[in-house]
């Protein structure tokens, strides 16, 4: 009897600290951070230098974050799977909340940063919420430009790169042209493009396509030049025609390089997009940022920047997703 009791005590003794341990302190951190930020926001008085905010959006946002942190913590108690994922992310989320709180202190609470250029978070969030439909309109305009330009550029880039890699005659005539024209930043073409295209939209689309085209072309060609000769030879001995070899050996083998080219091109295309919109357009996120800057409405500028960064983030994420799908065979061959 004594033995059994002893072992029972031991097992419960083991599970209790184990249970506490498995929750870990990190999952509480976001709650603490959000609550702290909320106390700072509500407890400290706003600086008199800032215009009085009509709505306390930041306090509202903190309440939402606090609620999310609470829900995540409770879910973590019951779901082991969720907890393991959340545990590693929690310190990062807490860091973001603390950073926002720091911004809050530096702007609205103490006005340590110049008030004109660093508006309070209440006002930035206010613009995002109150100007939402107008920003969306600009966003759609920019996205359309970006998508059409990017698709054209990527398609032309891959085609040119494949042709350069496989057709010596084409390379003889075209490669010097690519080398000379390619490195010029596509925004430098703006004066010329504006007069040669009928509309600003078509001109901007062309420039974005150009920005994607060059790195995609060069890296696709490089990718094809780096393919082991034995792949082509073995394909030939299996009775594959020249065209079949291009599409079923050349292009798949050059894919990893192609994606690097597309990434470089995508980054260049964002620069071109914003510049093009700032110079010639009458709508779009780049135009919005530039316009609001001239109006000295810096809260709107920040709102525009946030939306811009979201577009870029989503675009790159989409490209990563596509790469992971297409290049799934590389998993295990290279450091992923």
């Amino acid at each position: 009897m004594a033995d059994i009791k002893g072992s029972e005590v031991e097992t419960t003794g083991k599970t209790a600290p184990g249970f506490a341990k498995s929750i870990k302190i990190s999952t509480i951190l976001p709650i603490v951070a959000a609550a702290g930020a909320l106390i700072v926001n509500l407890g400290l008085p706003d600086s008199a230098e800032h215009p009085i905010a009509e709505h306390h959006y930041f306090a509202g946002a903190l309440c939402v974050l606090l609620a999310f942190a609470g829900i995540a913590f409770i879910t973590g108690i019951f779901s082991q799977k969720f907890r393991t994922v959340y545990q590693s992310k929690a310190p990062f989320y807490s860091g973001i909340i603390l950073f926002l709180s720091l911004c809050d202190i530096l702007t609205a609470k103490t006005a340590l940063l110049p008030v004109l250029y660093f508006p309070s978070l209440d006002r930035v969030l206010g613009v995002l919420i109150e100007d939402f439909s107008f920003i969306c309109k600009c966003l759609i305009y920019s996205l359309r430009l970006q998508f059409v330009g990017w698709l054209c550029g990527a398609f032309c880039g891959i085609s040119t790169g494949v042709a350069l890699g496989f057709i010596p005659q084409f390379k003889y005539w075209t490669y010097p042209l690519v080398r000379i024209l390619g490195p010029i930043p596509s925004t430098a073409w703006f004066p010329l493009v504006l007069v040669s295209f009928p509309t600003v939209v078509s001109a901007s689309t062309f420039l974005i396509a150009l920005a994607v085209w060059f790195p995609t072309t060069v890296l696709t060609m490089n990718g094809i030049n780096n393919i082991q000769n034995s792949y082509f030879e073995v394909a030939e001995t299996m009775g594959a025609s020249k065209t079949y070899v291009i599409f079923h050996v050349g292009i798949p083998a050059a894919m990893p390089h192609m994606f690097i080219g597309l990434f470089n091109g995508t980054c260049a295309s964002f620069i071109t997009l914003v510049t093009a919109e700032m110079i010639g357009a009458k709508c779009g996120i780049g135009w919005y940022i530039n316009w609001q800057k001239e109006m000295m409405a810096y809260a709107n500028v920040y709102a525009g920047l946030i939306v811009m960064s979201l577009i870029c983030y989503c675009f790159i994420t989409l490209l990563f997703y596509l790469r992971d799908k297409v290049l799934v065979w590389q998993k295990g061959v290279i450091k992923w």
Partner: peptide, 30 residues
């Protein structure tokens, strides 16, 4: 080169982007 003469290299030269099945089916598809 032609499909009437199969060739096997010292290195396997299987296409890394194709599964074993698709590698083996390559010459039929080509």
């Amino acid at each position: 080169p032609g499909s009437d003469r199969g060739f096997m290299f010292q290195q396997h030269t299987l296409f890394p982007w194709l599964t074993i099945r698709n590698n083996i089916a390559f010459s039929l598809k080509a």
